[in-house]
Computed example of a mutant assay.
Amino acid sequence: MYHKVWDHNALRKGFFKEFADDINAKIEDRTREIAKNLIKLGDSDEKIVAATGLSLEEVVVLRNQLKA
């Protein structure tokens, strides 16, 4: 019971906010890696945007990076 109360209080007070930036950065990195894999598979930019949520500009930059 105490553990459950502690977890609730920790989440309510924003205990995990300090990790949010690191977690979001890892998610963004992973999303870009998925987009690169889709580019390598030959998917269209529009399909990659729809699948990953990246902007069209980001996908174009990734595609150009892979060409270089």
Rank of each mutant, 00 (worst) to 15 (best):
Q65P: 00
V5N: 12
M1S: 07
R30M: 12
I27V: 11
A35I: 06
D45E: 14
D45A: 12
M1I: 00
E57L: 08
G42A: 08
I27F: 05
K13L: 03
L62T: 07
V5Y: 12
M1E: 08
H3A: 03
N37C: 05
E28C: 02
D43W: 10
L38P: 10
V60C: 03
K47L: 00
R63G: 06
V60F: 09
E18C: 01
A25W: 07
E33M: 11
E33P: 00
K40M: 11
F19P: 02
V49T: 01
A68V: 08
A20W: 07
N64T: 06
L38E: 11
M1D: 09
I39P: 09
V59W: 04
L62A: 12
K26P: 06
E18K: 14
A25T: 08
D29I: 01
V5W: 10
I27L: 08
L66K: 14
A68Y: 09
E28V: 08
R30L: 13
K17P: 03
D22A: 13
E28P: 00
T31Q: 11
W6S: 00
V5T: 11
K67W: 04
L54P: 07
V61K: 15
W6F: 07
I39F: 03
L38W: 04
D22R: 13
A50G: 04
H8A: 13
I48R: 07
L41E: 06
D29S: 11
F16G: 04
L56G: 06
K47M: 05
H8Y: 13
V60L: 12
L38D: 01
L41P: 02
A68G: 15
Q65S: 06
D29V: 09
E46Y: 10
V49M: 05
I39W: 01
K47Q: 04
H3G: 15
L56C: 01
G53K: 14
A50L: 00
I27E: 13
S44N: 05
E33D: 13
A50K: 15
K26V: 02
K36P: 00
K36H: 08
Y2W: 07
N24V: 11
L41Y: 05
R30Q: 12
S55M: 08
N37K: 14
L66P: 09
D7G: 04
K17D: 14
D29P: 01
E18A: 06
N37W: 05
H8M: 05
L54G: 12
